[in-house]
Design a binder for these strands. Structure first.
Lengths: 158, 158
DNA sequence: ATTTATCCCATGATATCCCAAATAATCCCA
DNA sequence: TGGGATTATTTGGGATATCATGGGATAAAT
């Protein structure tokens, strides 16, 4: 499974295109579909993204024959209906659809944020705020996300 | 199996034709039959659609019920009796039959809603209502649709 | 003969492709 | 360890192809 790390800020051009960071594209290079799958985050003003395999895993619990279950009904409606396949152009860019631009309040710039098996696209300022808040809360809670090892040898949680 | 994602709203013309979104047609391109299979949803005022392979899977599911049971009886009656094959015209459109238009309350516009292995056709306003509720519930439940796999390999839903 | 469905072409809008320029990262050799 | 050269990446924009849509003409059905 792909692994997305670090944060990159790229420009959204007049046509609504953005370069997906080369490192992220490399992580997706194994996939049959040359592009990403994206949908609005339920919790934040951000776009969640991954490869096709990731989307298939999210939907793995959904049975083809399951036309009657209420839970799956709402979940697939929220997931698949809002998801979009965004293909790379020759330069590794994707065209952001209107609904995602609106949901994430994207303008001239987009922040690509690695989150391990997936990545997110944020409005850079919104992400800075969110991150500051996350750090504040982590400090408050005594930084429970701590690697095993001697004190002071941690990875400097961001 | 085909993967239908995202939502597209297309126009129903005076003759009752609608373009099936190009992305959906591409997902069906492997199929022998150039068109879709459609039947009224049991749960909603919507039309459920898929390729022929999907219909065959539904048939296989029906086989697992006892041949003489009430379930089998109602299912086959409801499923196959109401299902219709809608062929594409040269431009990738289908002609919506009267009974489906009535069932889904379709007028000038039709929303094509991807739901993974199948897709649905809705009246756009009706779907917007349903969609809002589905997203609300998904957020509330914290996306319980977990990817299949060992613990720790999940998508890290935020 | 009237209706209903299919085929075919035209058109505007949109997305994709392709080439070229700027920018950033990396390498190499002194 | 510099600093210039080389390569990779990002960005811009014009040309091209694709898509959604409309409507006339043709064919089939009743």
């Amino acid at each position: 499974m792909a692994m997305f790390l670090s944060t990159t800020i790229n420009k959204v051009d007049r046509k609504g295109r953005v370069s997906v960071p080369a490192a992220f594209r490399a992580a997706l290079s194994e996939q049959a579909f040359r592009g990403i799958v994206a949908f609005p985050s339920f919790k934040h003003a951000a776009v969640q993204c991954g490869g096709m395999d990731w989307m298939e895993k999210l939907g793995a619990g959904v049975d083809t024959f399951d036309l009657f279950s209420d839970e799956h009904d709402t979940l697939t409606a929220a997931l698949f209906a809002n998801a979009q396949q965004l293909a790379f152009d020759g330069q590794g860019r994707v065209l952001l659809p209107e609904n995602l631009i609106v949901h994430a309040s994207l303008a001239e710039q987009a922040a690509f944020v690695g989150r391990g098996p997936l990545f997110e696209i944020w409005n850079p300022e919104a992400f800075a705020d969110y991150q500051a808040e996350a750090v504040r809360q982590a400090a408050e809670k005594g930084l429970t996300l701590r690697p095993a090892g001697p004190p002071g040898s941690d990875g400097g949680q961001t």
